[in-house]
């Protein structure tokens, strides 16, 4: 380890760029959020509005519903991915599994596919009248599946698409965690006569907790901001059934050019994201205090 000033020199370019494209925008919307600014209005300049933008925002049911919908979506997605991912990770770690490397590689595929292409692909699969999913569901099970009219079908399809896209990541990270677990506690628990469920709940889950929380953290952040896939799949419809918060901001702010209100909307979304991630982060670092 050497003196610090030269170290800063190496860090400076990266810090500078991230300051400009990461931090400056934040300060800027913080500022714009307190103004009434609409470039298409009679007076296209910034006018001080105080908290007026936020005042209208807390009564904006479309926005609040969209926020709530995003949280529900993220909740379902993260829980199902954890369960599925765990089962798959265990299956992939089975002692004799022929073609393990092949399965692993194929399984990684969805992670690297562009979200926009994922959306396009699922649209090809699910779009009514063209895709094979509605056709075979009707033919084999008699289900009228239609993502462009049925809100539940659209929401469900958005979840399944996200499962397809991101379960592989959960599988691989849980597998990394499981492989790194020490063997002794598991063997000890087996000797002590614990059944599978007990071993899972009292031995594996506590030991896996850091990995589980990290995975949840990353998946949650991604789920809260998914826009591209949904936009390609349903365009947020039918009505607003799949209009998640990122999409809501995107399709609202730019055509309307109501920048002050858009800034407030963005900031409130950021607030929710930061609070959620901070809570998870605290849980992750395990800073239990208070009662000694």
């Amino acid at each position: 380890m050497r003196q610090s000033n030269i170290g800063w020199l190496f860090l400076a370019p990266a810090t500078l760029i991230l300051f400009v494209v990461g931090f400056l925008p934040f300060i800027y919307i913080l500022y714009v959020g307190f103004f009434d600014w609409n470039t298409n209005a009679v007076d296209p300049t910034l006018r001080w509005a105080g908290l007026q933008n936020y005042r209208s925002l807390v009564f904006d049911t479309t926005f609040l519903n969209s926020l709530a919908r995003t949280l529900v979506f993220a909740f379902f997605v993260v829980i199902s991915e954890l369960l599925l991912g765990y089962i798959l990770a265990r299956a992939l770690m089975a002692d004799r599994l022929w073609g393990r490397q092949f399965f692993r590689t194929i399984h990684t595929l969805p992670i690297v596919v562009a979200p926009i292409a994922v959306g396009a692909t699922w649209r090809l699969l699910c779009v009514p009248g063209f895709g094979i999913v509605p056709y075979y569901l009707k033919l084999w099970f008699g289900i009228d599946y239609n993502i462009s009219t049925n809100a539940y079908h659209a929401f469900g399809t958005a979840i399944i698409m996200d499962l397809w896209h991101w379960t592989p990541f959960v599988t691989l990270s849980l597998m990394a965690g499981l492989t790194a677990l020490p063997k002794e506690p598991l063997e000890q628990a087996q000797i002590d006569g614990g059944n599978k469920l007990q071993i899972f709940w009292y031995v594996i889950v506590p030991m896996l907790k850091p990995v589980l929380l990290t995975t949840v953290f990353i998946r949650l952040m991604d789920a809260l901001r998914s826009v591209d896939e949904i936009w390609m799949l349903t365009k947020g419809g039918p009505a607003e059934a799949t209009r998640f918060i990122g999409l809501h901001i995107w399709i609202n702010v730019f055509p309307k050019t109501d920048y002050g209100y858009g800034a407030a909307m963005s900031l409130l979304t950021l607030y929710v994201t930061i609070v959620l991630s901070w809570l998870l982060f605290v849980a992750m670092t395990g800073r239990k205090g208070g009662a000694q």
Partner: peptide
């Protein structure tokens, strides 16, 4: 830590300020 948090930020939130900048 600050460098890393940049990745976690939701892009939709930064669209508007970046567009304006």
């Amino acid at each position: 830590f600050w460098l890393i948090t940049n990745r976690m930020a939701p892009p939709a939130v930064f669209l508007l300020p970046l567009f304006l900048l």
